[in-house]
Design a protein around this nucleic acid. Sequence first.
DNA 1: TATGAATGAGTCTTCATTCAT
DNA 2: TATGAATGAAGACTCATTCAT
Lengths: 218, 218, 218, 218
Amino acid sequence: MNDKPKPASRDAAATQRRILDAALNEFATQGHGGARVDRIAESAGVSKPMIYSYFGDKEDLYKAALKESYLQIRKGERAIDTDHMTPEDAIRELVHFTMDHFISKPWFTSMLNTENLRKGVTVREIDHLNDIQSPLIHQISSILERGVAEGAFQPGVDPTELYLTIASLCFFPVSNKYTLRVVFNVPIDDTWLKRRAEEASKMILCYLRATPETCGTD
Amino acid sequence: MNDKPKPASRDAAATQRRILDAALNEFATQGHGGARVDRIAESAGVSKPMIYSYFGDKEDLYKAALKESYLQIRKGERAIDTDHMTPEDAIRELVHFTMDHFISKPWFTSMLNTENLRKGVTVREIDHLNDIQSPLIHQISSILERGVAEGAFQPGVDPTELYLTIASLCFFPVSNKYTLRVVFNVPIDDTWLKRRAEEASKMILCYLRATPETCGTD
Amino acid sequence: MNDKPKPASRDAAATQRRILDAALNEFATQGHGGARVDRIAESAGVSKPMIYSYFGDKEDLYKAALKESYLQIRKGERAIDTDHMTPEDAIRELVHFTMDHFISKPWFTSMLNTENLRKGVTVREIDHLNDIQSPLIHQISSILERGVAEGAFQPGVDPTELYLTIASLCFFPVSNKYTLRVVFNVPIDDTWLKRRAEEASKMILCYLRATPETCGTD
Amino acid sequence: MNDKPKPASRDAAATQRRILDAALNEFATQGHGGARVDRIAESAGVSKPMIYSYFGDKEDLYKAALKESYLQIRKGERAIDTDHMTPEDAIRELVHFTMDHFISKPWFTSMLNTENLRKGVTVREIDHLNDIQSPLIHQISSILERGVAEGAFQPGVDPTELYLTIASLCFFPVSNKYTLRVVFNVPIDDTWLKRRAEEASKMILCYLRATPETCGTD
DNA sequence: TATGAATGAGTCTTCATTCAT
DNA sequence: TATGAATGAAGACTCATTCAT
């Protein structure tokens, strides 16, 4: 009838979906301690007992939301067809994708922050998380191999560490934009961030191409 | 007499100090929503009304703690005497200092996360924050100028953006260490982080030294 | 097919039976306030609406369970054939039977406790309860008459009061066994209770045989 | 000012006292599951947080109330000066005291029922409960010794078991009065109970005086 | 200055009960 | 007949904040 969450849909799967979306949003915007079950119920259009019967307690719901946020990231990453790009384009694409993802799914960085603030007590309990991310590492690994084979990239770069570099450069300005704006007067917005992603690509490629001659460090 | 916080000192300044330290610790480890005034009072060794009379309400106390965390950072940064180093050593030193700082003062990254989770509502209210950080930017600025003058660095690099790059590379693996350990199986500890800082230095220097010939992007 | 309660029998009477048994067990072990309709439904193997449609609300179900516990008691009591024993043996038998009954049907004492804690609000509403117990009183009455006729028992003992005496001596150590074990260090178990029943028989018979000479009370 | 519980007395000990009294009353009349913390707070004239801060959670409060009920019983028992009575009077006095106590402090039998319904999970946790009751057993022990020495009582009667007999005979009609009234039409009230205590005394004394000749069992 | 005592307003969670199929 | 889906109302417990001394 309308596009707002329908109350009392009698469709269990849909109800669970609505709860999970609402929870993800609430935990991401309010943090774990600040999240309110009442608010989740209301924005999902269900009564509180539904939440408890489908997900267990608040902690369990948080866990489900955290897992969901990882699942969604993976879905996007798999969508990038890096196999048909040059290694350099593939890297650039990955950087831009990562930045875009952080920008367009702000709950992802928030969930990471929230969970790390909690010292990762919950992430440890999620099964198969490693499986969720390993395809990404394989993807990067294959890009690097091709780059080395072509003589474009220096050898010996670890794919996981490369991913951490990409993520670092994208994560920080997105996640900390509120404080950065105030403290450093940086006019962070989507345009600024995208330019920044381009700059990050350059730096990373510069590093990957490095040879002792061009970039000899000591 | 002993080294535990004294229960009822007649020294107002010392009492405020103890409250502030306790608050910083509590907010950083528990987040804004998870922080408890009771716990702050107890660990500061004062009664709750003391806190309210010295600092106002919880939000005011949080603000004081947030400001304090920036003040402490600045104190450290001023201590590096980059003027007597080569530009390259100065950059390297800055990267290592930043990483060490994030490692040794974990409340700082936590406070940044907490505040950004809150969309920076409080940081906006702190006066003179800009002043606190600008000496750092000047320091970087002067390093860059010297590097360009010596022909070691490419021209046109913005000091603030360079700082953001340094901070990005150090912040992410420290701040997200709990999730990274689980999700990517990365054995993050102090040794790992220091090696990582060294790698970051190389990447940054590589970028700073870049010329169209060596690193020509497009 | 199997001996677990079948999930959805088409046999209404059997379904009601299963609900009633489950309810009796739940109310007896959890008390009125502690009993959970969900648990009754689960252990009866039916859905909650079934319970409501067959029995009304929780209070009605409790009432049915309470009545059931009295009905089951009566069934047992009728089984003792005291008519063919000497009056003394009959009394002894009655005491032992009562003790055994309290031991083997622990839900009975529990239901009594539960209902008295509630000041008997529900027992008052059960019809024909008096009929349920009166055969027992007649049985005792006839034993006493035979005993007096034989000159074995003193006259004038009220059968109801005698029953209360028997019940008192058996009920207390069974019903309060948990506290007695802790408070008086009494090692109450089935063996202990049976010996105790024997001792109670002696005391009661001693009293029934009493004459002013032997037992002159003032 | 008035004799109702004063709100906000600022007298911690008095406040705790009021809470404990209110709790004892609530738990005894409503059972553990039926008791409401709100009601305790209201009838004690305090806010709920006071209860939690002074006693812990509901279970802890229940524990305190249970212990209190044992403490109060002991106080009464110590008050009977059985040393200056004949052994027979002493026994009679003890029976009447016990009955009177059960009648006048109805929360005592209720607490016993409630706790036994819970299988004694809490009573086990109360420290020194044994100490609380042992003076009573010593008192009975000394009465029995004197009686045997005078040739009035048979030897070999265990004081704890004698106490259980007394308690049994008094407890049952008091604790189960609501169901007994309905099921056996017994007009139980204070007068009835006191007469019953007298009858119980006779039975017990008859048993204590018993010799093989007068009361030969078997 | 300093604090033990006290509480209003939530916050999570449960449970008897009903609805829609 | 039977039940999975759903909820209003309440219950235990917490927490920032203030009062009275």
